[in-house]
Design a protein around this nucleic acid. Sequence first.
DNA 1: TTCCCATTCAAACGTTTGTTTGAAACGAAC
DNA 2: GTTCGTTTCAAACAAACGTTTGAATGGGAA
Lengths: 222, 222
Amino acid sequence: MTNDQDASAKFALLQAAQALFAEEGFEKVSMRTLTQKAGVNLAAVNYHFGSKQGLIEAVIAGYINPVNQARLKALESAEGAAEGRPVALETILDCFLGPVLEAVRKSEIAEKLFFQLLGRCMVDQSLSSLPDSVMETFQQVLIRFPQALHRSLPELSEEEILWRLHFSIGVLVHVLSRTEGFLHLAGGRVGKPAFEEILAMVRTFCRAGLMSPAVKETVEAS
Amino acid sequence: MTNDQDASAKFALLQAAQALFAEEGFEKVSMRTLTQKAGVNLAAVNYHFGSKQGLIEAVIAGYINPVNQARLKALESAEGAAEGRPVALETILDCFLGPVLEAVRKSEIAEKLFFQLLGRCMVDQSLSSLPDSVMETFQQVLIRFPQALHRSLPELSEEEILWRLHFSIGVLVHVLSRTEGFLHLAGGRVGKPAFEEILAMVRTFCRAGLMSPAVKETVEAS
DNA sequence: TTCCCATTCAAACGTTTGTTTGAAACGAAC
DNA sequence: GTTCGTTTCAAACAAACGTTTGAATGGGAA
C-alpha cells in the first residue's frame, strides 16, 4: 500500500507516533495504543528509543530540526545573493516562513496533522526540555535572523527586533496549532483557505508588525 | 450553604490549583500534590468540584471569563463614547489587551504564574473541551471585536479581520505562555521588561499587522 | 437532648501508566 | 550445524493515577 516495507519497528513507531502525537498530544498517547497502531510489540519503544521521552524527542527533532536548518540555509543563500547589502524584509520573512510550508508539502502525514504536531512541539513540551539539537539550532535562528533583520530595519534596536521576532513566532505557532479551533469558534463566518493562503496572511501581518516604528526610543546616551 | 467564604477548603483548593497548574500544567499536577499543598483531604476535590476536570474548569473559567467580560464591557463603553462613529483601532486594541493587564494586577498569585496559567488555558486544553461559559463569552468576543474592527478598517473584509484577530490572539497567548523560555533562549541579549512594556510592544505590533493593506481583493468573483 | 445535613478524613479501590524481564526467534558468519 | 548479536515477544512489574467508600466530625435547628 504505502512504500518500502523496510518498515523496521523503529520506522513504524516513528510514523505512528507522528500521527498520534499530532492528534492527541505527547502525554496523552499511551505506549500501548502507540505500539498497537504501529503493529509492534509494547517493548519496542524502550528497546529502540530507550524510553517514551526518547521517542518524543526523536519525533520532535525529526520535525523541527529540518525546518530550522532550512531556515538558516535559506537565509545564508539570500545573504549571499545580496552581496553585502541588507536583505529585504520580505525575503527574510520568506526564509523564515517558507521552510514551514515546504515541510508541510514533504510531510507524509496528513497536512492537518502536521500543523498540530509542529504546533504541539512548541507547546506541549516545556522549552527547556527540548532535545539539545533542537535548542542549538533554534538558538542559531534566534541569532542569525535578528542580525539580518537589524540590517534591514536599522532604526530598530536589536532588542526590539528580538521581541518582534518572538511575536511573529507566536503567530506562526498559534496558526499551526489552534487554527482548527479558531475555525470552529468562528462558526461559518470564515472558510478554511489553503495553507499557502494562511501563510500569505501571516506574512503580511508580521511584515507590517516588524516594520512598525519603534516603541522605545533607540537608547542613546540619556 | 453552598458558597461564601465559608467554603474554606474549596477556596484553598482553587488557590493552590492556580499556582500549581500555572507551574506545571493541568495534567501533570496530581490530586495528591494538589490537596497536600492546599492542606485539605484528598477527597475534597471530588467532593467540591465533582472531579479533577471540574476543578480545572473552575480555575479556567475563573480566570478567562473575567478577562473576556471586561473586554466586551470596555468595547461597549468605547462604542458608547464614540456615538455611532467608528471606534479608533488603537482604542479597540486597548479594549482587547487592557483587561489582560488589569487581570494581572488583580491577580493574587505571582505575576509570572499568572502569565503561565492564562497561556496554558489556551494551550493545554483542547479548545472544544473548555467550559461552556468560556466558549460562549469567547464567541461573543469573536463577534463584537471583528464588528468594531470592520467599522474602523472598512477596506478589509470581515473574514480577513477575523484572521488577523486570530493572529493577534496568537501573539498574546505566546507572550503570556512562552516569554520566559524566549528570554532564556535569547541569552543575555534582552532583559525582561515590565509587563506593561511588553504589552505596549504587542500593541504596536498588532496595530501595524491589523492595519496592513488587504492580502486578498475584497470582492471575490466565483 | 436528638436529629439532620454538610463536610472531613483515612483507607482502599480498580485502572492505567512506563518500564523491565527472560526466553524465543531471526539472520548472517564461521 | 553451531555460534553470536540483534530484534521481537508475552508476561509481569512497581508506581501513580483519579475516584469511591463508609465512618467520624461539627454545628444549627427541632
